[in-house]
């Protein structure tokens, strides 16, 4: 049963990922992306990482909604985005990104994680943490103790991005906007 579900989610995730890249219209790409992310969340559930699955849907569903708005507000205004995708700088960028990804995949496949590393002691330690603190506590506890500096720095980064967005969105002159 688990295997059948895994294959189903994996096929949808990979098919969706291909659809994001190959889709002609931006809206289709976005919906393929939602399908991919939801299937990855499903795989997380099969791995009993319920918290990650819920957060995956929560965060990405909201984020993609914003992307959706960008697409329909910017790309539907008659701007010819297909010309941008033809040869030139973009193809160079796309080629280098796929090269990098391929390289990463290659190194991972050439030197896979040893079979024992994710089982045995590590798995039972995770099980114990989940049993003691619940599905959320097992992630929240290390996040706010061992990794709190990294966590706070990430928060600071997001704050900087928000401030920058507000500064960019404000009208240039000192006058107040009519609302």
């Amino acid at each position: 049963m688990t295997d059948v579900l895994f294959v189903l989610f994996a096929v949808v995730a990979l098919g969706g990922a291909a659809g994001v890249v190959l889709g002609r219209s931006p809206v289709a790409s976005l919906l393929f992306m939602v399908a991919t992310l939801a299937s990855v969340a499903g795989i997380f559930v099969l791995l009993e990482a319920h918290f990650l699955a819920a957060v995956q849907v929560m965060v990405y569903a909201g984020a993609i909604m914003v992307l959706f708005l960008f697409v329909i507000m910017l790309l539907n205004l008659g701007h010819d985005y297909r010309a941008d995708l033809k040869f030139g700088l973009w193809s160079l960028l796309a080629l280098s990104v796929s090269g990098l990804t391929g390289g990463l995949l290659w190194t991972f496949l050439a030197d896979p994680v040893p079979a024992g590393a994710l089982g045995g002691a590590a798995a039972s330690a995770i099980d114990a943490a989940v049993a003691e603190k619940g599905a959320v506590g097992a992630i929240a506890d290390p996040l706010f103790t061992d990794y709190v500096v990294a966590f706070e720095l990430t928060g600071l980064l997001l704050l900087v991005a928000i401030v920058a967005a507000v500064v960019l969105a404000k009208p240039r002159s000192g006058e107040e906007q009519e609302c």
Binding site: H50, F51, A53, A54, V55, V57, M58, A61, G62, M65, V130, G134, A135, V136
Partner: peptide, 13 residues
């Protein structure tokens, strides 16, 4: 195990 988060996730969909 993530009851409330499941609801938030679905409501965002």
């Amino acid at each position: 195990p993530v009851g409330i988060l499941y609801i938030l996730a679905l409501s965002s969909l």
